[in-house]
């Protein structure tokens, strides 16, 4: 995260007074004065047990080490619609260091019910562009790289640098191909899918057969009848983000072959071992 020279500069800057917390303004001032990136300044502060205020409400859950690991992390989010929009929102707020987002689409009126990046004034705009603007607004320490295209367009170097991939696609064929891609790069994938009141989330570890098991021979799900309402998208996205952050922050080490299926109408949550 930091070169020896940067550590020396920051050590000088931080030793001037006893600091226990850093405001948004303080961090920006240090970054501006030293020419060191905001993300690196945050990381250094966390390393010295200094709380960046923007992460204070994370620290009781993630700890200084977990927050540092999250800042060092790179995620790929495939699909920036109902699931992906909420995921980049949460990951940026949580302090995920680098987010790579891919979506070939622009917003239309049918997205407004659930896609958090869509609004009347963003109809017709590229989803990746709105994602970029949103992340800059929420947390400028986060690096965002956008691909206005399919996930197949993402460069090899980005797959190699990634720690985790989010499957936020809206079609089964694409999900299967993405799963294979993640296995080929030895990356865990967070799968999420929704239909009506129901959703499912799984951590798909490399070489796992979960997707083949649940989607064998299928082309579409019941979402063609039930649609995809806002609360289900937000719920699935939250579970996906929590599962990813557990791994990124070094809290989850057990590799379970599990899928969570939830039904918000019945308030029924089933954890299924596959």
């Amino acid at each position: 995260m930091l070169t020896e020279k940067e550590i020396w500069i920051l050590a000088g800057r931080f030793s001037a007074r006893s600091i226990t917390e850093l405001s948004i303004e303080d961090m920006q001032a240090i970054a501006d004065e030293t020419g060191i990136s905001l993300k690196a300044v945050e990381w250094y502060a966390l390393d010295k047990q200094i709380q960046p205020l923007r992460y204070r409400r994370n620290l009781g859950t993630l700890g200084f080490d977990g927050q540092k690991k999250l800042l060092e992390s790179t995620i790929i989010v495939c699909g920036l619609g109902g699931l992906g929009g909420h995921i980049i929102e949460q990951c940026a707020r949580a302090g995920t260091g680098t987010i790579i987002g891919a979506d070939h689409d622009v917003f239309d009126a049918t997205n407004l019910n659930r896609q958090i990046l869509s609004a009347i004034d963003t109809l017709g705009e590229k989803k990746v562009e709105e994602a970029k603007k949103r992340i800059e607004k929420i947390n400028p320490a986060v690096d965002f790289k956008d691909y206005h295209g399919k996930f197949a367009d993402i460069e090899d170097s980005d797959w190699e640098n990634a720690d985790i991939v989010f499957d936020c696609l809206d079609n089964i064929a694409g999900r299967i191909v993405l799963g294979e891609k993640c296995t080929s790069h030895n990356l865990p994938m967070i799968h999420g899918a929704i239909a009506g009141w129901c959703g499912q989330v799984a951590i798909v570890w490399p070489a796992s057969s979960i997707l083949e098991t649940i989607y064998k021979g299928q082309e579409t799900g019941i979402e063609t009848e039930t649609g995809t309402p806002p609360f289900t998208a937000a719920a699935a996205a939250s579970i996906m983000t929590a599962n990813a952050i557990k791994i990124l922050a070094g809290k989850e080490t057990e590799k379970k072959e599990q899928i969570l299926f939830f039904d918000l109408f019945e308030n029924d949550w089933q954890t299924i071992n596959l």
Binding site: G82, L169, G192, A195, Q200, Y215, Q218, G221, A233, Q270
Partner: peptide, 10 residues
């Protein structure tokens, strides 16, 4: 026997 529908939306 437990039967769940295919869910694929995003």
């Amino acid at each position: 026997v437990a039967i769940f529908p295919v869910v694929g939306g995003g």
